[in-house]
């Protein structure tokens, strides 16, 4: 995994900050418009749109002809929330909602107790499912993402062999290493996710520790926490 993740895009090669490009794109037609009039400004914008269309079309064809490996973004989307996680979120939201409705007196205590028991059971089942189905997958994805970031110089190297590692360490070694780095629950001894605050197995609060991972895989933006 010593190869860079993806070749930089032609735009990135220009080494111009994005905001400079945006400011130029805004300022140029305004200046031309003030100096030469509205039609000239519109023509300039049209020329810009044409150039952008050609450039993007060309880039698209390049991407089509020379399929690269996944970009980092796409690697991260591999760990996008699964159906089980979506359901888990939905159940947790329902629980939050129930608490609210109980607090404002919309449901009686008996109904509340019954519903909460039901949804807690559901949440437990889904959490377990998520860990079973996705746990290993998530770990591997996280591991690969970290390696990429390290290779790209975007993250610190926590485990030395990662940078100088042989070209292709076996996936089992990698997984074992990832496991090593995860915190252990002081109560039951289970390994937890690196960003977890509570143990998935027994629910005990985990000891605070500095975050070493560059960034957790982004969950889908439209979800409420």
């Amino acid at each position: 995994m010593s190869k860079p993740a993806t070749p930089p895009s032609p735009l990135a090669r220009l080494q111009v900050p994005r905001w400079v490009l945006a400011a130029l794109a805004l300022a140029a037609p305004v200046i031309v418009g003030l100096e030469l009039g509205l039609p000239a400004a519109i023509l300039l914008l049209a020329a810009g749109a044409l150039a952008a269309a050609v450039f993007l079309g060309y880039s698209s064809l390049l991407a089509l002809m020379k399929p690269n490996e996944l970009t980092l973004d796409e690697a991260l989307t591999l760990v996008a929330p699964s159906n089980e996680e979506e359901q888990k979120r939905s159940v947790l939201r329902t629980l939050k909602d129930l608490e609210y409705e109980h607090a404002v007196g919309k449901i009686s205590a008996a109904d509340y107790a019954e519903l909460v028991t039901h949804y807690r059971g559901e949440a437990k089942r889904l959490l377990k499912l998520v860990v079973e189905v996705r746990g290993d997958q998530l770990n591997r994805a996280e591991e690969r993402a970290t390696e990429r970031l390290v290779a790209a110089g975007l993250a610190e190297v926590k485990v030395q062999p990662s940078r100088t590692a042989p070209a292709d360490p076996s996936s089992s070694t990698r997984a074992a290493r990832a496991l090593e780095r995860r915190p252990r629950c002081a109560v039951c001894g289970q390994r937890a996710s690196r960003n977890a605050r509570f143990c998935k197995a027994c629910g005990a609060r985990l000891a605070e520790r500095p975050r070493t991972a560059p960034k957790p895989p982004p969950s889908s933006g439209s979800h409420e926490p």
Binding site: A52, A53, L56, A63, P67, E69, L70
Partner: peptide
């Protein structure tokens, strides 16, 4: 089954949008 082609599809969508913008600018002109 060719997920990396998504990059090409996205760029294609952007290019198409730029072409539409070009059409509107030409008519405005």
């Amino acid at each position: 089954g060719r997920p990396h082609l998504l990059v090409a599809a996205r760029l294609g969508a952007y290019a198409t949008s730029c072409l539409v913008l070009l059409g509107v600018l030409l008519l405005s002109y």
